[in-house]
């Protein structure tokens, strides 16, 4: 029953986004909307190209993944396989605590400490860059990724490790070839949840990326994401206007992207389980 309800909710959300953005997409054209290089909703005539926003979102997500995934897997391995028991409990507690930090606070810390640091270190005109956004998002997603990967690694039966060790494999070989392999479906699920959190994150990103809707050429320039655009502009639009509806269309695209990512993750998980 509850499962049915949640499916109905998802369909309703999709329907809502679709209805709100339908007239806009019909008038402006989906293709022009997605591939347009300029986002000037307030100029005359307005231009609603979200390519820079999509690229901004993807760039930041990609950067955050590159930072977060290796660190998360290694941390999870350390916590579950190498750390002594009392340290393990303590670290696990700390990481679950980290997951509870509100995104605004992480964004705030990023703005005060990270942004000036990046400006100084890389000698940039502004520290509000895609790179800063990636780092902040990596920090936000790591607790989720570590915690769930750790659960997956910890639930690998002791007998697998024993079997490998009894054959003369070293601890490291056992971890690399047996434990990681057996825990892989769980680790992938953890990573996907982390990516979900990265793509959907709004507040922290808005505070550290500079929000300039240009197509970025490097990771050291300000970018703007789809989520930040919706959050920043929704308050300024006239209800029912073209601009208002275009924001719903962005929401629809965002929804589709996360949907596709989850779908791929699901297919991948199923393939591995088999």
């Amino acid at each position: 029953m509850c499962g049915m309800l949640s499916v109905i909710f998802v369909i309703l959300i999709f329907g809502f986004l679709f209805v709100e953005s339908f007239t806009f997409l019909k008038n402006f054209g989906i293709f022009r909307f997605i591939t347009g290089k300029h986002w000037f909703p307030a100029s005359n005539p307005p231009s609603f190209g979200i390519l820079p926003l999509i690229i901004g979102s993807i760039l930041i997500t990609f950067g955050a993944c590159i930072i977060a995934i290796p660190i998360s897997i290694m941390s999870a391995l350390f916590i579950s396989e190498i750390a002594p028991e009392n340290l393990r409990d303590f670290l696990k507690f700390l990481i679950e605590l980290m997951a509870a930090i509100p995104s605004v606070i992480i964004g705030f810390i990023g703005m005060i400490i990270l942004v000036p640091f990046i400006k100084k270190t890389f000698n940039l005109s502004t520290g509000l860059t895609a790179f800063s956004g990636s780092i902040v998002l990596a920090f936000m997603s790591m607790p989720t990724m570590i915690s769930i990967s750790e659960d997956a690694i910890h639930s690998v039966p002791w007998k697998y490790k024993e079997g490998a060790i009894a054959l003369g494999a070293t601890k490291w070989q056992t971890i690399r070839k047996v434990v990681l392999k057996a825990a892989m479906p769980g680790i992938i699920a953890a990573i996907m949840l982390g990516i979900g959190r990265i793509i959907g994150e709004t507040m922290a990103v808005m505070m550290v990326t500079g929000n300039a809707s240009n197509i970025p050429k490097t990771i050291f320039v300000p970018v703007r994401t789809m989520t930040a655009t919706i959050a920043a502009e929704m308050g300024e639009t006239v209800r029912g206007s073209m601009h208002y509806r275009s924001l719903f269309a962005i929401g629809l695209i965002l929804f589709l992207i996360t949907f596709i990512i989850n779908l791929i993750a699901d297919l991948f998980l199923r393939k591995i389980r088999r």
């Binding site: 007998k159 697998y160 024993e162 079997g163 490998a164 009894a166 054959l167 003369g168 494999a169 070293t170 070989q173 070839k177 047996v178 392999k181 057996a182």
Partner: peptide, 24 residues
């Protein structure tokens, strides 16, 4: 070498189970 009470195949193919230890 040691064989345990319950069979413990490693979570991989039959072939890999055999070459696992020699490779390690």
């Amino acid at each position: 070498g040691m064989l345990f009470a319950m069979p413990i195949p490693l979570p991989m193919s039959i072939y890999e189970n055999i070459v696992f230890a020699p490779k390690c």
